[in-house]
Design a protein around this nucleic acid. Structure first.
Lengths: 151, 151
DNA sequence: GTCAGTGCAAACCCTTTGCAGAAAG
DNA sequence: CTTTCTGCAAAGGGTTTGCACTGAC
């Protein structure tokens, strides 16, 4: 059986199968939201998903977008990326990787796990287990003159 | 009479000097907020700062707490820690270090920079400069049985 | 006296919730 | 037909803002 990986050109059937594999009932709205996320392989906020989804023929309400993104995250279909206090991004790439976050533009970019390794994990606090490691490299636009002293 | 908090060791004069060094006018409220932050050396949310500050003799309004924390962050006196979409934490430790974030309890703990280094930074996107690296190790409570399959 | 800082409450924005109607199986 | 999902709008919670008063120098 051909396994379906996020990022491929996905048919509607692929998406239904992807949802089914995660025990998610494939409604029209959920299929549409998954399409938007996996077709673009981008980091999208709920608001952006809402806009993109309603660019198409299927109408989806704000509540359903939030509920669905939460469900997808819970089921491990997407990953929440928390870099900005004002909104959550949803990342269709669930493989291990990290992020650049441009604080000026809000752009979020993947960093391949291979090009950024940790020099050993510290001992976890007693009675806890790891739930994932997030590495965020905050970047800003290089403005001529802003690097120099003064201001 | 001012309450004495556990771990408090900075005199009011120390704090005034610390503020002056960052070009921050030392008002009563700012001194009080700095006291709360630096006496405990904990990660506190704005809401927690508000509660702790008003536990003492100086009254500080919510707006002033938010304004002051924002000012402190801007002036480099504290650092914002973004690990939870619902609130920002303020970290009085501005030395290079990283964090454990307990997703079950909300507890935020420092990781010494020495015990967790990156094996080389990847190339930054063109036209950008680094603005800092955040490493967050998400942890959860080790619940007997939850580690094994069949949850 | 002047200017910056503070306080109050309302505004804001993202997100969640309650419940009736609609869709899925 | 029963259960689950969706949509609407209002509620919720952290954060910001406008403006008059207060405090710092």
């Amino acid at each position: 059986m051909a396994k379906v990986y996020p990022g491929q050109n996905l048919s509607q059937e692929d998406i239904i199968e992807m949802l089914a594999r995660r025990q998610i009932q494939p409604t029209q709205q959920r299929i549409r939201i998954a399409e938007v996320l996996f077709a673009r392989r981008q980091h999208l906020s709920a608001d952006q998903v809402l806009a993109l989804v309603n660019d198409g023929p299927v109408h989806v309400s704000k509540a359903t977008v939030y509920n669905t993104l939460g469900l997808f995250a819970e089921k491990g279909l997407v990953r929440q990326v928390i870099v900005d206090p004002s909104r959550v991004f949803y990342d269709p790439n669930t493989e291990e990787h990290h992020h650049f976050y441009n604080v000026d533009t809000g752009a979020l970019t993947d960093i391949d796990a291979d090009s950024l390794a940790l020099a050993g994990l510290p001992e976890l606090p007693a009675g806890t287990v790891s739930d994932g490691v997030d590495i965020i490299i905050r970047i800003r636009e290089q403005v001529p003159g802003r690097d120099r002293a003064g201001g």
